[in-house]
């Protein structure tokens, strides 16, 4: 496995116009074949960090690099190398699952997919076949999320960003999703995800970061967590015990 980093935050800071410091000097890196899970409470800066990677926000200082390209300097170039799964995506309600997939695949530059490809990827994310050609209007939250993941898989980018991907999924779907993520890692994807789900993070992630008030207050590899109680650590960090 190559050692260069796919996703990299370098002294990343973001101060909003109202003066609030959402991300405060955060640095980390994710290599291909690695899952980096960001934990943290509401408003800790996880989503902001992901937004900077996607150039939805410009960093106040530092850089977010995708495959070595600073997202805010060459956003279009950077975005070619990344797929994104957002929290609670509604998608286009008047489109079928396959139509949604097709559109986003094309936007991602993949025009060669066949109907069979869409079928396979939807089955892979666990969407029953009878729903493939149904409009999204009637889909449940979990079904829509599966489509979102399928869209990310189809882009076949070396990096994947996920913003709270498991929120709203039932436990079984959540479990299946994490397995899927593992298999993507095994294919060599660099995965950065923000989550509230400590339990699943511990199971799947290779590296875990905890964010609090915009700072990355803890970053440990799975090996480094061996024997530690992640839940206790998280609570302590949230309470500011380690500061």
């Amino acid at each position: 496995m190559s050692v260069h980093t796919m996703l990299e935050a370098v002294n990343l800071s973001k101060r909003y116009e109202d003066g609030a410091l959402a991300v405060d000097d955060v640095s980390f890196s994710v290599r291909p074949g690695e899952i980096f899970a960001m934990l943290g409470g509401n408003g800790a800066g996880k989503t902001t960090t992901i937004n900077i990677f996607l150039n939805f926000l410009e960093p106040t200082a530092g850089e977010a690099r995708i495959n070595g390209i600073a997202a805010h300097r060459a956003p279009l170039e950077a975005k070619r190398h990344v797929a994104f799964v957002s929290e609670n995506v509604m998608l286009y309600p008047t489109f079928t699952a396959v139509q949604n997939l097709d559109y986003f695949a094309r936007l991602g530059g993949k025009t060669q997919y066949t109907a069979d490809d869409y079928r396979r990827v939807l089955l892979r994310v666990g969407l029953q076949e009878e729903a493939h050609h149904k409009k999204l209007k009637g889909f449940s939250k979990g079904m829509r999320q599966k489509c979102g993941i399928a869209i990310a898989i189809l882009k076949d980018a070396p990096a994947i960003l996920l913003d709270e991907p498991t929120s709203g999924l039932d436990p079984k779907s959540g479990f299946e999703f994490m397995q899927l993520l593992g298999s993507l890692r095994d294919e060599g994807k660099a995965v950065l995800m923000s989550t509230h789900d400590i339990f699943r993070a511990k199971e799947t992630a290779d590296t875990i970061g905890i964010m609090r008030q915009g700072r990355l207050v803890m970053q440990r590899s799975r090996a480094g967590l061996a024997g530690e109680d992640l839940e206790r650590l998280y609570m302590e960090h949230m309470a500011g015990v380690h500061e």
């Binding site: 170039e77 990344v82 957002s86 960003l161």
Partner: peptide, 15 residues
Amino acid sequence: KERGTLRLTFANAVP
């Protein structure tokens, strides 16, 4: 934006 598709769209290299 309300449907979340704007984020998804611009996660791609769309000018």
